[in-house]
């Protein structure tokens, strides 16, 4: 009996240490975000003081939030998926062509978006989980496939004029109490778009999935250690497969949200979003080695990344290239920090 309690206690202890890892990284992310935003409000002032500025970060990045959450899940299982940006672009283009040229409606658009995501997820998940090919190579191929397919579907930008779609696109959900007075002294209410609500619902659902369901815990177990997960009776291949399917489905949903935000299909849509998604996940405390991560952190990762982009732009570095360099620098910084943390942990 004493033996079993010791094992139990040890197991529980280990679990608590692992959880505190996740929570520590989450806490760092949240703190970093608040410091960033508060210092922007204090030192830069101007538009940063208006609540709408914050809501605009959400409005512009609803799709990125969904993409990054999918990316986090794949990264928690120890994989990576760099096809998400290109899938977003492909979904936008197909949805636009469907609405404009094939007389589709919103329902067919949603079905197509999720269907494309599902197809990518099934193929990539099968190749990664069941044939054991490196996820990076597969999703690199997936990314180029999606890029090529987008131009095969249409090379020209497709603008959408479907009325039902435009009605949804322009729906503004007013957030009470956060409005501000403009220069003429009129009260302008603060608003969010439909996509933001969907994205927030997705974040909450995924948070619950990861924290309280069997599948969610399996993701962490597989990412933490393949073999011990296998010994615990978890179907490792199935879990990895599902992670990739989920990620690509979320990329499809992200494509729909992106489309809802911009209202047109274009080959430049979602360019570089895979990098933004990876950067957001890493900033949000997801470890590349798997087993540690949190979608709540990822959500704050997206906010931090875009806050810093805005700060850099408002400091006068507003040429297009600064945004990319900022993302890369943030990515580099957090990667190095993670690696130092891991190296020190391994030494202990």
């Amino acid at each position: 009996m004493p033996n079993t309690t010791a094992v139990n206690r040890q197991g529980r202890l280990k679990e608590r240490v692992a959880m505190s890892d996740t929570n520590l990284l989450l806490a760092i992310t949240v703190v970093v975000f608040f410091i960033l935003y508060l210092s922007a409000v204090i030192f830069l002032g101007g538009s940063f003081t208006k609540p709408q500025n914050f809501l605009n970060i959400l409005n512009n990045n609803a799709s990125l939030i969904v993409l990054s959450c999918g990316m986090s899940i794949v990264m928690i299982t120890g994989g990576i998926d760099i096809s998400v940006g290109a899938v977003t672009c492909l979904v936008c283009m197909i949805c636009a062509v469907n609405l404009e040229q094939q007389g589709g409606n919103i329902l067919t658009m949603i079905l197509i978006g999720l269907g494309v995501g599902l197809a990518f997820g099934v193929v990539q998940g099968f190749l990664v989980a069941h044939l054991g090919i490196q996820p990076f190579i597969i999703s690199l191929a997936g990314m180029f496939f999606a890029k090529g397919m987008t131009t095969i579907v249409s090379k020209e930008p497709v603008r959408v004029t479907n009325e039902a779609f435009l009605a949804v696109k322009d729906t503004r959900i007013i957030v009470p109490g956060l409005g501000s007075n403009n220069k003429l002294g009129q009260y302008v209410p603060a608003y969010v778009e439909v996509g933001v609500v969907i994205a927030l619902v997705v974040v909450v659902l995924l948070f619950c999935l990861l924290r309280w369901t069997k599948l969610g815990r399996a993701f962490y177990a597989v990412g933490g250690n393949n073999q011990s997960a296998n010994m615990l009776g978890i179907n490792v291949r199935q879990t990895k497969f599902l992670a990739h399917v989920l990620c690509s489905m979320l990329a499809g949903l992200g494509g729909i949200l992106y489309f809802l935000h911009v209202g047109s299909g274009d080959v430049a849509n979602g360019a570089g979003d895979e990098m933004n998604a990876i950067a957001s996940s890493i900033i949000g405390g997801t470890l590349l080695t798997g087993g540690v991560g949190n979608v709540a952190g990822t959500f704050f990762g997206v906010l931090s990344l875009n806050t810093i982009k805005r700060v850099v732009a408002s400091l006068g570095f507003d040429e297009a290239w600064w945004s990319n360099i900022t993302v890369a620098a943030m990515l580099c910084l957090f990667l190095v920090v993670q690696s130092i943390v891991l190296l020190r942990k391994n030494k202990k």
Binding site: L127, A141, M143, F144, F145, K147, G148, M149, T151
Partner: peptide
Amino acid sequence: PSTALPAYKAVVVI
């Protein structure tokens, strides 16, 4: 077309 080329090559890679 050169823009569609990646799709074909991706199939070869896979």
